[in-house]
Design a protein around this nucleic acid. Structure first.
Lengths: 205, 205
DNA sequence: GAACTCTAATACACAACTGTATCTGAATTC
DNA sequence: GAATTCAGATACAGTTGTGTATTAGAGTTC
């Protein structure tokens, strides 16, 4: 198996990616604080040297991790907006939206971890808030477009609705993860759907 | 100033309470993992000896802390139910409800911390879920009673609505804490109110 | 291919936390 | 009021982590 010979830049990039991937797993499993730099590097197959030569600090790596995830979600939502808004099936629409935001548990845990960390670290909070507001704006746009196509008025400001939607998704996702027995599999969608159909359609009378 | 002479039991109880109070502050500030036993005891004016003679572990103390907070909230909600359900002002109703659940930031952070911890520790999760389900049931009852008095049908199962409400409150509270500038002061109530008035009143047409 | 450069490994010095084991002094018992 | 008991302080041994300074070995340049 002829292993490709990497340039310095490629090799460095590979290391960074592997460290980020390993960090995602480790942090989701143990939490940001409890995860040591060695946990990350060990998992990735490197030593601490590799880490400090690629990242300033654990926080620094963490924010890059979040950005990477953020970009993925943004692109996914954008795609939904472009291709799928035509379907009038709210339930399906929401299910897609929801799974776009939290396809897997790792992602949820990472963002929950981030929210907590942001309460304590002002600099981090600023950077995180920027990402969150971006996400909010995309969702707000999503909602606006949705209502427009449905020819219905917005029941509140799109930005506020977007925030509420994010909170709601987080909350439902948590219960879904934490009590898989307690809720039926589709509880997430059905609760969301009940609330949103009332919110968006209710005002039509 | 004649300082009261305490019995052994009283003194022990005082120590426990002081440790719990100090732990709430420390954990909210630094996070569960980052808070050392010494942080707690130091803040409370004791040494590690006092801690280990009162609690099995940090987790053990933490769950007691949550229980204490849980009981407070439960009682508060119960009281709301008994005295205040007569008022028909939804906005005011929600504001009270919301401030009952998260009067201060410490409490929010503690529960966020708990949710994350529960993802990782199965035993802890079981104990936490028990508390959450209790809270859910009280809220579900709250919602049921509310709808009954308003003579309107429930737009979804009370239990599911309660979960959604908890998630929504959490989400809004987070944004409220994290971006105090971004949202108007009453955003929490107004978003909640927009969603809920649609949810509960929308179906009446 | 020799000199150079940069990535990542290794070595080091230091700090922090944990849990137990032992000790002390104040409350309790008789 | 002497003996006892228990809450909490102190001492200890071991583990784990951090960040920097140095080194080795690949990629790069000429």
């Amino acid at each position: 198996m002829p292993r490709k010979r990497l340039t310095r830049e490629e090799s460095r990039e590979q290391t960074r990616v592997r460290l980020l991937d390993a960090a995602a797993v480790a942090i989701a499993k143990k939490g940001l604080t409890a995860t040591s730099v060695e946990d990350i590097t060990g998992h990735a197959g490197y030593t601490r040297g590799a880490f400090y030569s690629n990242f300033k600090s654990k926080t620094d790596l963490f924010i890059e991790l979040l950005k990477r995830d953020h970009v993925d979600v943004q692109e996914g939502l954008q795609q939904l907006l472009d291709t799928d808004l035509s379907g009038k099936d709210l339930q399906r629409q929401l299910a897609l939206f929801y799974s776009q935001c939290y396809g897997d548990n790792t992602s949820y845990v990472l963002w929950a971890e981030a929210r907590l960390h942001s309460v304590r670290d002002a600099k981090f909070r600023q950077r995180l808030n920027a990402l969150c507001l971006e996400k909010r704006d995309v969702i707000a746009y999503f909602i606006t477009q949705f209502c427009k196509r449905m020819e219905m008025p917005l029941p509140a400001s799109a930005a506020d609705l977007a925030l509420a939607m994010m909170g709601l998704c987080d909350g439902v996702k948590y219960f879904n993860m934490s009590m898989p027995g307690e809720l039926p599999d589709n509880a997430a969608e059905s609760v969301l759907s009940a609330i949103f159909s009332a919110t968006f359609f209710g005002s039509r009378a």
